[in-house]
Structures are given as C-alpha cells and as structure tokens.
Nucleic acid binder design. Structure first.
Length: 852
RNA sequence: GCGAGGAUGGCGGAACUGGCAGACGCGCCGGACUUAGGAUCCGGUGUCUUACGACGUGCGGGUUCAAGUCCCGCUCCUCGCACCA
C-alpha cells in the first residue's frame, strides 16, 4: 500500500484537536518559546500559498522546540478590520460583520487543514468587541498621557467621491476607483505622538535580533538629524522665522529664506504687491498630491516680498515660498545656502538669487559644494576647518550667546494619523462637544460597540458613515450631565495589530488586556515571522505601543519582538505575449503551455489559433495574473506534509519562492520513500525490528540528527531537508530495520511532515500513541563519537592546484600524507622534473605541495 | 540620488573560523524492472578536450602556499526611501 496522506492527515489532526495537543499553559520554571506569525487579514478569497510559506517555517521551529523541552506558545488570529470588507459592504450591501465572519470561517478551515500546531483556544479577531474593548482601553490610556491628541493632519480628499482615501487608493494623483482628482486637505483628526518615542525606537533597535535591512529602514524612517534652530528677524514684524539647519556653519552664506507654502506665517509676511502671486502658488501646491509634488524636481517658488535679517551677516535677505520645502519637516522653513546645498543652488540659479561661497574647496559658480573645507567670508570664523564638526559647534555656540539659535535634534518621523473616516474599524471611545473632546470613556463603558448602519457609502462630507448612526451618536452623558456626541472617526487597521501579541498571552482575560503574570511569562516573542512589507508600519507601531504600555508598568519588556525574520514571497510564472509594438508586454493567462524554456514559452491563448511565443516572468501570485495556487488543491493532490516540506526545501526562508509543481512532486516522492523505509508489503507491515543497528547506520543517523538540529536552530530549513534526503536514501540502501534507528528518524521528520511522522512513530516504530504525539518526545541527541571518522579524505594540491585526493588517518603526520600523495599518478605527473620545495599540510583539511 | 541586500551549472540552491566549488532537488541523458509508465530502482550530467589536461563562483586588480569566502575599484539586478534642510 502506498503512502496515503489523505487518510492519515485528517486522522492526526483530529487526534491533536481532541487531546488539546498544542494548548499552551504557563508552567513556572519551564523555559518558554513564543513563536508568532503575522496574523492574516481574512479576505473573501481565502488563503493562498503565500501564507503557508512563513507559517510553515515557524511551525517547524515550534515542533522542534517542543521536542527540545520548551513550553511553546504558538497562536493565530485575524486582523479583521479593514477596507476590503467595507468596500464589499458598499458594493454588495453585505454587512462587514457578516462577510468577515464568513471569511474567518474559510481561513480557519484552511489553516486547520495545514496542520499547524496552533493553540486554537487562543484564537483572536481584532473586530471582536471582546478584543477591541482593550484596543479602545489602550487608546484611552494614550489619551490620558496626551500621546493621543487631536491635531492637524493632511489627508487625501477626493471631492468627487466625497471621501478620504488611503495612500494606496491614490494612483498618480487620481482616485483608484473612478479616476477622480484627489487633493491634499488639512483636517483636524486624532494623532498618536510616536515622535515622542523617536529616540527610544532608535536605540531599541540595537538590542534586538532583526534583519539589518529592516533595522535600517526603521532608522531611516525615524530620521534623526542633529542641527540647530536659527531665528531670523523679519523687517517690519515682531515675529521671527525659525529654521532648522544641520549646517549652522554655513549661515554666513544664507542668502534667502524659503518657507513651505503651507507655513502659517506666510500670509502675515506677504507684501501687498506679492499677495496675488503667493496665493496663486499656494493654491497650485494644494492641488498637487504629495506624490506629484515629489515626482518633479523642477524648482518653483514665489517671492513673498518680505525681507529677513541674516543674524550672522546682518544683511537683508528675501523670503520666498517654494514647494521643495516641506511643511511637516523641521520647522517648515529653511535658510537657503546655495553655495553649499544642491537644492538651494538650483533654486538660486532658477530665480537669480545670489550665491556666496563660505566654505572653500569647490567652485560655487559651477555647483554647490557640500564637502568639507575652510570657512571663508564668515567674519570671525574665517579659517576654521569644517571637518569634524568643530565649526558647527562654534557657530552654534556663538549664535546661542546672541540668543538666536539653539542646538537641537530633529526627527523625520511624523506623528501617526490615528483616524479613518470609515465605518469598519474600532470606534474611538471619546465624547465630544462640537470639536471639543470632553472625556474618554472609562473601562466600564467599554467596549463601545460599532453600531449597525443602513448605508456604508461615504457621506460626502468627509465624515465616516458612523455619522448616520444618529441613535448611537448622541449621548446624554451621565458623568458630566451634558449632551454630548460620539466621535465618528474610527481607528486605522494598524490599531488592533499593534498589541495582539500581548492578547495571545492572556486571550480570555476580561479584567485586563493581559495580566502581568501572562506577559512576564510569555513575552517577548522569541521568533516573529512575517512579510517584509511591514518593515516600517506595523513593526514600528507595535514597538511604540509596547513602549507606551511599558512606561505605565503594564508590561516588563520594552521591545516586543526579540527575533524577527521575513519570509520570501511565493512567485509564479506569468506569461506575456507580444503586442503591436513587438514588446512582450501583454499579460496573458494561457489555456495551456505547449513548450516551456524557463524564460520563454509557447502557449495557447484565447484569440490565437496557433500557439504563440510568450515571455515568462516570475511574479507575485495574484488573481488578476491568473497564477494563484490554492493550498486546498495542492493538499487534495499531494497532502499537507508534501506542501510543508516543499515550502521549506525550495529556498532559504527569506528568499522569494518560485512555485514549481515538479519540485513539490519531488518532495512528495521523498515522503513516499520515507514511507517505504517504515512499511512494506500490501498490508503495510512495519519493517522495524529490535535488531542492533550497525555502526554505519548509527553514523548516518547521528550525522542527520546533528545537521538537522543545527539547521533548524539556524532556520536553514532547506539544508535540513537535504540532510534528511541523504539519510533516508542511504538508510534505504542499507535496508535498515533497526527500531533504534528508525524511531529517531521519524522524530527528525516530524517538524516538517508531522502527520506522516506520527504514523511512522506509532505504527511504524511501534511507539505508544500519546495525547501530545511525537512532537513532545525528547529530541534525539547526536553523539559526538559518530560524528568523526577514523579516516578522512583530503584534497592534494600541487602549487595550489587540485591534483587528486588521499584518504588518511585523522591524525596522520605530514610524512605519511606526502608519501600517500606522491603515490598518486596525477601528483606524480605534476611533480615530474620538479622537486618539492615546501609542504603545507593541515591535518584533515589539505595537503599542498609547492614544487619547483 | 541615498540606503540595504544580492550576482555560483539549463533551473532552485549547497559550501563551518580562507582548505577537494557545485551538497540536495528540478530538468535532461542512459539503463533495469515492467502489458504499461507521468510507478519504482540504478547510473550519468559545470565548460572545452579523443585523452592528458586546461578553464571555471558578475567584471578588473590585490593579499595568500591556497580566495565563492578577505582587501581595493567597477558593472548589473532586487528591495526600501526619495527635494528631510
């Protein structure tokens, strides 16, 4: 009888479920291991093979860690608030509550089929009121600490749709739906003061084991830069313009100021003569999306007519507005030093503004010089070298003494806009009187549940659809005795995902979001696996929430994720055929593939009688491209274990995975070979017997144990499987029957192909069935004596070039080695007519004969 | 432009602190067993060469007895950020 995954897989899944095999409980004193997967957004389309790529890797580690004696927490849940469900509600009138519940149903069924060792009793969903009660409560803590505040933020406003759009709903300045113009609009809304955590978010990165690229992305996002605020007096005004600069040492060369068009002082300064031009430019800027503005590097701007005083030179300089200065960064105003800043130089050239050299070393007539040099045209500082930062310190100190500058650290990171004008999100638990926030709800008033609404479509005013829930909106507040109104904005999708890893530790607690006992035991996450696309969003927000909770003593650790790894995307072939231009740029879903040569193919396609030539590209799976593989289909054909092994074997965890069914079949074939090592005959009688293993068998086994153990620890799953290939191949050739060898082999297979392994372990190796299963059997230990050979094959080189190999005793001396080498024909030929001048011999590694 | 990562057979990928480059798998070629094979098993497979051998880890230099691995200078690719003062 052959290996039949469709029979054994459901059997063991039932067993695990019935016996709560993977339910995690706090066991004081036992080392814990918390393995976390980024929880999925349950879309209506169900899971695709991209999800299991990462989930399988963490599951392998979990099963391994259990066998190594760790108390493993491996939870799963759903990030279930979000736009797609809301869009479906608008399009089809299905309540998001309903469509989300259906989608979760599908996801749960699919995830269970994949055989992950999740503790399903800890399943959570961010749109569940029992969950978002605590999301809301954390918000009220942030509000109490003034980390949550109402501020002015910019949104993508689409007048045509009457709604606010997310960044990815805006394409080339137009709405993705309907292609209507989108403008940037200032709106008063909830923000989180993530900038207050900037320094700690930065320094915390040094304490965690994350991919360097991800740390770099966060560092850049936070964007720390040292510099100074410098005040410029404005003629005829008592107000001063403050600029941020990283180069106070170039102040003598500041020949004009530039304010962002949105800068709040612009209107006050602008002279009558320039008012019209300035207003026109401001309007033009507002009409351009941020992306638009950044797309063009062309310098534009308008003189406000105002004149400021350079505090270093005392000279009068013009004040301009230009869109290359960003309102949200620094003070929204700069001192322009065209001699030593490329952007200022280009602007000065375009507008005919003066350029002054204040640091020698370049030719400011030709280009801005940003390098180091010696200060010139800088009054008392002439001759000061700029290298090393001394010049900056001196000038800043001098200005500080005059009261017009202070050293400062500026961050690029902007506060987090924490509101969406949408329905399908956590209601923000506050009561307002008009624009005025009166109070946040208290714990006993939570959760503030999302009320049903009749219509999910945008209101057209920019308010969320909650504005229609009139019975819910108006409140006679028993606490203040006032007639108040609820907030109609909801929280963004990233709210619920910013703390879910804590809730998993204590998911049913209705007194606290998570007890200290639970988080102290389970946290921090020991391994977090998820997509690199969350580099700066989710991974930064979660760190901030953790720090906020830490500051209030609600959690012990400042960093939530001790170790992070990203999994690669699953790619599939897409076919492009030639259009009229002759370029292969027409995405085509083939009816069948006739011929396939990796980069090119012949395909049959709709509208073509004959097969047509197509270019093959590997792209992320998507429904539109017709290259999606559904895990259910794969499982039907080959079983889950084959899929799991394939995903692990294909590429290293973090690399993209080009989906090739032939490779998957190969892993299925390997599992069949494993099966035949344990069972034989038509009745599948177990082959294992109580016979003493041979030294060769033990050597093979222990080497496999050693390699697989080290590889799983290093998350090098592809090489672990290749070691298992070798072990099963060689043991099969030896006809191994020894239970002493086969039983541990089943354990090595278990993390990767857990269902098969349970059968191998019990029926195959004759071990008793236990509630926990093979995952809890102590992991085999590689004995050192089997890992070393008595003899070793080393390479022989003549003048550094390979000339054969010799087999030697491990501790053979140089004389023996040279003699053995000289006995080789190939070495003899190389040495003919020469004498050995020098011998390099590294026992067990190499013998190199230097001949002359 | 800035930052990060990468480049090894026809393909996915191995290679510990420098020490026999190409493990394992796909594909391809050949064979065995079969009524059959898209089952199973065995063998071969970097390039050139009849052989001996030579050449081979993106390119050009260097260090070393020895370099995929270390150093210097490039090219190309992927991802992120992008007028950040």
């Amino acid at each position: 009888m052959p290996y039949r995954p469709s029979e054994i897989e459901p059997l063991w899944q039932d067993h695990w479920e019935k016996h709560d095999s993977y339910v995690a409980r706090i066991v004081p004193g036992q080392p814990k291991f918390y393995a976390l997967d980024m929880f999925p957004y349950p879309s209506g389309k169900g899971l695709h093979v991209g999800h299991p790529a990462g989930y399988t890797a963490s599951d392998v580690v979990c099963r391994f860690k259990r066998a190594r004696g760790f108390n493993v927490l491996h939870p799963i849940g759903y990030d279930s608030f979000g736009l797609p469900a809301e869009q479906r509600a608008i399009d089809e009138g299905i309540a998001p509550q309903v469509s989300t519940a259906e989608a979760i149903e599908t996801f749960r069924r699919q995830l269970k089929r994949l055989g992950y060792s999740y503790d399903w009793s800890r399943e959570i969903s961010t749109c569940d009121p029992a969950y978002y009660k605590w999301t809301q409560w954390i918000f009220t803590r942030l509000y109490a600490k003034r980390i949550a505040y109402v501020g002015e933020g910019f949104v993508n406003w689409c007048p045509e749709l009457g709604t606010v759009l997310a960044n990815d709903e805006v394409i080339d300045g137009k709405s993705e739906r309907g292609n209507h113009p989108v403008e940037r609009k200032r709106m008063s809304q909830w923000m989180l003061r993530i900038s207050a955590y900037a320094d700690r978010l930065l320094s915390g990165l040094d304490t965690i084991d994350w991919p360097e690229a991800t740390k770099t992305a966060q560092r850049e996002w936070i964007g720390r830069s040292e510099g100074a605020f410098v005040d410029f007096a404005v003629e005829g005004s008592s107000e001063k313009v403050t600029v941020f600069t990283t180069r106070p040492d170039t102040l003598f060369g500041a020949t004009y100021l530039v304010l962002a068009p949105e800068h709040s002082m612009v209107d006050g300064f602008t002279t009558e003569a320039q008012r019209e031009a300035v207003a026109a430019y401001q309007k033009r800027t507002a009409g351009r999306s941020e992306r638009d503005r950044q797309a063009s590097k062309e310098k534009t701007g308008v003189d406000t007519g105002a004149r400021a005083i350079n505090p270093a030179t005392g000279k009068t300089i013009p004040v301009w507005i230009a869109d290359y200065v960003i309102a949200g960064y620094g003070t929204g105003a700069i001192m322009a030093v065209p001699g030593h800043d490329e952007r200022d130089w280009e602007f000065a050239k375009a507008m005919g503004l003066p350029i002054v050299e204040v640091i020698s070393g370049g030719d400011v007539a030709k280009a801005a010089y940003a390098g180091d040099g010696v200060m010139v045209n800088s009054g008392p500082f002439d001759g000061t070298a700029t290298a090393g930062g001394e010049a900056i310190r001196k000038v800043t100190a001098w200005l500080a003494e005059k009261g017009c500058a202070r050293a400062t650290v500026n961050f690029k990171i902007r506060d987090w806009t924490f509101a969406r004008q949408r329905y399908w999100g956590e209601p923000i638990p506050v009561l307002k009187d008009g624009e005025q926030v009166v109070r946040a709800l208290t714990l006993d008033e939570l959760p503030l549940e999302l009320p049903p609404v009749a219509d999910y479509a945008p209101t057209g005013t920019g308010e969320s659809p909650l504005a229609r829930a009139v019975n819910w909106l108006d409140v006679d507040d028993p606490v203040t005795g006032r007639h108040l109104r609820r907030e109609v904005d909801t929280m963004p999708g990233s709210a619920g995902s910013s703390w879910y890893f804590l809730r998993y530790c204590d998911p049913h607690n209705d007194q606290e979001f998570c007890s200290r006992e639970a988080s102290d035991y389970w946290m921090p996450v020991d391994l977090y696996v998820g997509g690199a696309e969350h580099r700066v969003g989710h991974l930064l927000y979660s760190r901030m929430w953790q720090k906020a909770l830490f500051d209030e003593g609600f959690v012990r650790d400042e960093e939530p994720f001790a170790k992070l790894r990203h999994q690669g995307m699953v790619l599939a072939r897409t076919f492009y055929i030639a259009g009229e231009s002759g370029k292969f740029n027409h995405l085509t879903i083939p009816e069948s593939v006739v011929k396939d040569d990796d980069r090119t193919a012949l395909i049959r396609a709709a509208g073509h009688d004959e097969p047509v030539a197509a270019e093959v590209r590997w792209e992320k799976m998507s429904k539109r491209k017709g290259n999606v593989v559904n895990p259910d289909d794969i499982i039907d054909l080959y079983g889950v274990d084959s899929l799991r092994v394939y995903l692990c074997f294909l590429t290293p965890l973090e690399s993209d995975k080009p989906w090739q069914t032939s490779q998957l079949e190969a892993q299925h074939d390997w599992l069949k070979r494993v099966w035949r090592l344990f069972f034989e005959g038509d009745d599948d009688s177990p082959r294992a017997q109580d016979v003493a293993p041979t030294p060769d068998e033990l050597k093979l086994l222990h080497r496999a144990v050693d390699k697989v153990t080290r590889d799983i620890e290093a998350l090098s799953l592809n090489t672990a499987i290749s070691a298992l290939h070798v072990a099963t191949r060689d043991l099969a050739r030896m006809g191994t029957r020894s239970r002493e060898v086969l039983a541990p082999l089943a354990q090595l297979v278990a993390p990767f192909a857990p269902h098969l392994a349970e059968t191998l372990w019990t029926r195959g190796a004759g071990k008793p069935v236990t509630p926990g299963g093979v995952a809890y059997e102590p992991w085999p230990v590689a004995e050192a004596k089997w890992l070393v050979d008595d003899t070793v094959t080393i390479g022989v080189q003549v003048n550094g070039k390979t000339a054969g190999t010799i087999e030697l005793a491990l501790d053979a001396d140089e004389e023996t080695a040279v003699a053995a080498a000289k006995a080789l024909d190939s070495v003899g030929r190389q040495l003919a007519g020469k004498s050995v001048a020098k011998v390099i011999y590294k026992a067990g590694k190499i013998l190199n004969l230097i001949a002359k």
